[in-house]
Amino acid sequence: MNVQTPPQKLTAKDFASDQEVRWCPGCGDYAILKAVQTSLANLGARPENTVFVSGIGCSSRFPYYMSTYGFHTIHGRAPAVATGLKLARPELDIWLVTGDGDALSIGGNHLFHVLRRNVDINILLFNNEIYGLTKGQYSPTSRVGQKSPSTPLGSVDSPANACQFALGSNARFIARGIDIQAKQLGEVFARAHANKGASFVEIIQNCIVYNDGAFDDFVAKEHAAERQLHVVHGQPLIYGKAKDKGLRFNVATLSLEAVTIGQDGVTEKDILVHDEKNRTLALLLTGLKPPAFPEVLGVIYCDPTTSYDAAVKAQDDAVRAKGPGDLDKLMRAGNTWQVS
């Protein structure tokens, strides 16, 4: 046996597998893959203790491109597989990669339960508002009017809001990022990784083939500064190229208003300060949509509580602390009789 001692500090390359990446050229997934590999290196993660679990779809090919352990499972069920894995091996660092169809359509049930149970895994939902692998049908996050092979006259479905779904599922960590913003994604991944519970991260991802430019209303260069709000806990909810726009709470309507500092008597004091432990604020922030409001990015909600796997382990450990079971004894408990 010849096990080499791994180098102290790993690089992003150490997290890349030897497999050729097979996403379409220009796909947003490449950037996310790179950001994840870089983040894991920065976090000091060990490939042998890291597992990527995925469902089915373009994004779910992710595990094959990582040098960690990986399990490419079946459509929509990755949260269930990851839950079983985490119960069996709570010490492993588990990442779940899924898409809007995988997580919110066929796997909606499992996503709900993995979030409400607060299983300690990091969930990366690549939201491109389209089915890519099956060639372009509309998805549960597609907007009304989306034309696709299955909706030639435009979709009439009301779309799901991924972060609000997570919030409604009692998720305790909710964040949002954009595929091409590697730095911000890295910060979000670090926070998600640090949270001991289900960490839900929606990643806005561009499908260059079937839904190119779907998010241009806030991702495109000309809109980015004016329509993206990167929230930071304890900092005012200010955005805009000139840092002159902000969110103000309207007590009368129980809603947020987009205001401009210096106009209509608005001062910086009127701007809400981000509190990531405030669930009501999280509900308001995740409901905002451009162009009237900014797209809210960063760690929107983080209010940790005991994870499901930790609670299960505590119960298991408490019983096992009393000593191992004796099957012969168990089977002889209660009413027995001897035949000689």
Partner: peptide, 21 residues
Amino acid sequence: TTFQAEDEIAACCAALGASFG
């Protein structure tokens, strides 16, 4: 360790996840 899953599919998937582990 026992796990009451959210449905039959999840139960089988979780069991398989445990086996992978």
